[in-house]
Design a protein around this nucleic acid. Sequence first.
DNA 1: TAACAACGTTGACAAATGTCACTAAATCAA
DNA 2: TTGATTTAGTGACATTTGTCAACGTTGTTA
Lengths: 189, 189
Amino acid sequence: MHEIFKSYLTGQIKLTNEQWQLVFRLWKPTVTKRGEVLLQKGKVSHNTYFVVKGCLGIFLSGDDGHEYTRFLVFEGKFGSAFPSFTTRKPSAASILSIEASQILLLNYRDHQYLLDHIPGWERLFRINLEKEYIYSIQRIESLISMDAKRRYEILLEQNPKLIQRLPSKIVAGYLGISQETLSRLKSKK
Amino acid sequence: MHEIFKSYLTGQIKLTNEQWQLVFRLWKPTVTKRGEVLLQKGKVSHNTYFVVKGCLGIFLSGDDGHEYTRFLVFEGKFGSAFPSFTTRKPSAASILSIEASQILLLNYRDHQYLLDHIPGWERLFRINLEKEYIYSIQRIESLISMDAKRRYEILLEQNPKLIQRLPSKIVAGYLGISQETLSRLKSKK
DNA sequence: TAACAACGTTGACAAATGTCACTAAATCAA
DNA sequence: TTGATTTAGTGACATTTGTCAACGTTGTTA
């Protein structure tokens, strides 16, 4: 798994062999089963993740029992219950392994250690943060300015694999609409 | 203005006098009038801002002529048309001075210069980025999982000054609802 | 294989929200 | 001040979306 990890990061950062060994030691490989819970809501998230294979989902469960999809993490991406991991406060969201997955995880202390001790790591992290922030801004834009149909069309255009790959329940939660509405959007057009 | 800027940042970063002088030289003070346009949509945003006094708004204009409020920047906060500023691509949003304001602005090249040459500046920037990202995640949560009434109640609770201070047109755009719906929410409860 | 659970679709209806038109109130400039 | 412009509130109605229930399909597991 570490070699795949390294190949994703090459181009983003240049490290010596010793530094890679340190990075590998802190990012711990794990495999998960489909449906496995990595974080329960209400608990502090102590880990951040990198997905080598498979898919993680970060979910909000509403008071009404509905599940909303806050974020999805596919191969080659970092993901976490970011607000909880960063602030050390209980998480509003839970993390589930949507598919059987191979992931790497890094705990909070080791995360800080890398930021402090690997030159360039803070930049790598910052640039990934910028990308995620931009993505979240675009999501806010679509949520405040478009109706469900346009949001779906745009998702279909920009991220078709997401729709093909995931159960429509999760896609609906991601778009902020009910499963039934999504089903109707699909059949209409 | 620079002294106020410095007082906001003290606690976040420790710099020598020479370093502060450099920072002050690059962050250029400007005053704006109410309604002044700082960035037109479709143009690349070359500046990032710090608001000393007043308020900036980052707006999306929909095809239908509606204006949506992507972000608001009050005293003591950084703000920009982030996706455009970061990627150097044309901005989907425009930036307006909502009130007559005193601001500092930093262009892209100087931004990179500070990241590269002031030790600790990248960390300062990264930590501010984390806060903004968390805020945007919480906004996504409220947009996908709550109806307009609850979003308004929560905004009223967490950010009452925003509602008091700004025209309700802008507040409605921020919540992703029409002005009329906001007006009805206000009167109902 | 059989039984059971999860998922996706559809209809009927209810609730939320948008649109348009109009009026009242506030703001601003001359 | 006056007149003009912007902004806020409200009613009537249309549209979107949610909710609940039913049903068939798929997938899982004993």
